[in-house]
Lab assay of single mutants.
Amino acid sequence: EPSQADLDALLSAVRDNRLSIEQAVTLLTPSSGGGSGGGSMDAKEILTRFKDGGLDRAAAQALLAGRTPA
């Protein structure tokens, strides 16, 4: 399960175009075949909204942490 520091680094990389959204989703869902963790939004949607400015960093982190299976 990614830590808050991992999520923060991942969000920074996506925002700075050092990591594509697809690459980030793969890192967030290493063994689930890329499927959502059952959250209301999947990781790709969360990351896309964050990059487009629709979500701030704290909200994106909380959503990603919340949808990651324990």
Rank of each mutant, 00 (worst) to 15 (best):
T26L: 15
N17D: 07
V25A: 08
P69G: 09
M41Y: 11
I21R: 00
A5P: 14
K51E: 01
G35S: 14
A70S: 09
A58N: 07
G33N: 11
R18G: 04
G34S: 11
E1A: 10
G39N: 10
D16E: 07
A59W: 05
A70C: 14
V14W: 02
D56T: 11
S3D: 09
A58M: 10
A24Y: 01
S31M: 09
Q4E: 14
G35L: 12
N17W: 03
L10P: 00
M41L: 09
Q4M: 15
S20V: 02
F50L: 02
L55V: 03
R49I: 05
T29G: 13
A58D: 09
A58E: 12
A43W: 06
D16Y: 06
R57P: 04
D42Q: 09
D8C: 14
G33K: 08
D6E: 13
R67E: 07
Q61F: 11
S40K: 08
D56A: 05
T29N: 11
G38I: 13
G37N: 14
G39W: 07
A13D: 05
R57S: 07
L19W: 04
Q61R: 14
K51V: 04
R18E: 06
A60E: 00
G38S: 12
A24F: 02
G53P: 01
K44G: 05
A62W: 04
S36K: 09
G35A: 11
R67Q: 10
L47N: 00
L55F: 04
A58C: 09
V25F: 05
D6G: 09
D8I: 06
Q4G: 12
L64D: 00
L47K: 00
Q61W: 08
T26P: 03
G54R: 15
A13G: 04
L19V: 07
T26A: 15
A65Y: 07
T26Y: 14
A59L: 06
E45G: 06
Q61L: 15
D42W: 14
V14S: 00
L11G: 00
M41C: 07
A62S: 11
P2R: 07
T68D: 10
A43T: 12
V14A: 01
L7W: 11
G33Y: 09
Q61M: 15
P69D: 08
G53A: 03
T26R: 09
R49P: 01
A5I: 15
E1P: 09
G39T: 10
L64E: 00
G54D: 11
D8Q: 10
S31L: 14
L55N: 01
R18K: 13
I46E: 00
T48P: 00
V25T: 05
G34E: 11
D8Y: 12
T29Q: 14
E1D: 12
G35E: 12
L28A: 03
P69R: 10
G66W: 10
L11C: 02
A65K: 11
L19Y: 04
G53D: 03
L7T: 04
A24R: 00
P69T: 07
R18Y: 07
G54K: 15
A60W: 01
N17L: 06
F50Y: 12
A58F: 08
A43I: 15
G39I: 13
K51D: 01
Q23Y: 09
L19I: 15
L10D: 00
G33E: 09
P69N: 13
P2T: 13
A58P: 04
D6T: 07
D16A: 09
A65W: 08
R67P: 05
A9W: 15
T29P: 09
A58S: 08
S32E: 12
N17M: 06
G34L: 14
L47Q: 00
L10H: 01
L11Q: 00
Q23L: 08
Q4F: 15
L63V: 02
L19S: 02
D6I: 13
P69W: 03
Q61V: 09
G39E: 11
P30D: 05
L11V: 01
A5V: 15
F50G: 00
G35V: 10
D6P: 06
G54Y: 14
D16F: 06
L19A: 02
A5R: 08
G37M: 13
L11P: 00
S12V: 07
G53T: 02
G35H: 13
R49S: 05
V14M: 02
L63R: 03
P2D: 12
D56W: 02
D6Y: 15
A70V: 12
A59Y: 05
A62L: 09
L63P: 00
Q23K: 09
P30I: 15
R57Y: 15
S31D: 13
R57A: 11
L28E: 00
T68M: 13
V25L: 11
F50R: 00
G33D: 11
R15T: 04
E22N: 06
L7R: 02
A43F: 15
P2Q: 13
E45L: 07
S32V: 09
L55I: 13
A59M: 11
T68A: 09
A60Q: 00
L10Y: 03
A24G: 03
Q61N: 07
L63E: 03
L10S: 01
A60T: 05
P69E: 13
A24W: 01
P30M: 12
P2H: 14
A70Y: 02
A62H: 08
A62I: 10
L19H: 01
K51Y: 05
A70P: 10
S32I: 13
R49N: 04
A24I: 02
I46H: 01
Q23W: 05
T26H: 14
D52W: 09
S31G: 08
S31Y: 12
S36E: 14
E45K: 05
G33H: 13
L63S: 03
G38H: 12
G39M: 14
D56M: 04
T68V: 08
A58W: 09
A43G: 04
R15F: 11
P69S: 10
D52I: 08
G54W: 08
S36P: 11
N17H: 06
I21K: 01
Q23S: 07
R57L: 12
S36Y: 14
P30F: 14
A9G: 06
T68N: 10
T29F: 14
D16K: 05
L11D: 00
